[in-house]
């Protein structure tokens, strides 16, 4: 019997980092959009917040694309 603790450990590590990282990015993206909306409501605009939000979402989309790549290959 040979339990591959290293593989299990890396699954744990990778899952944890990926989940927390992605959720953080996504939440930051939503926060940015929300700021932009609030600013727009007052007639202004928050370019930085909006750009940051889009950057976050782009990274999330890249992660999803990488996930699909992992499934296909």
């Amino acid at each position: 019997m040979n339990i591959d603790w290293a593989a299990l450990g890396s699954v744990f590590g990778v899952s944890l980092v990926a989940t927390v990282g992605l959720v953080t990015l996504f939440t930051l993206g939503i926060t940015g959009l929300s700021k932009q909306e609030a600013a727009a409501a007052q007639g202004g605009s928050a370019v930085l917040a909006r750009t940051g939000a889009y950057a976050c979402f782009a990274l999330c989309a890249a992660a999803v694309a990488y996930g699909i790549y992992l499934i296909v290959v």
């Binding site: 593989a7 890396s10 699954v11 899952s15 990926a18 989940t19 992992l70 499934i71």
Partner: peptide, 11 residues
């Protein structure tokens, strides 16, 4: 994340 990590890292 867990499903993809586990099926690609061999556990």
């Amino acid at each position: 994340a867990v499903i993809l990590a586990s099926s690609n890292l061999g556990f």
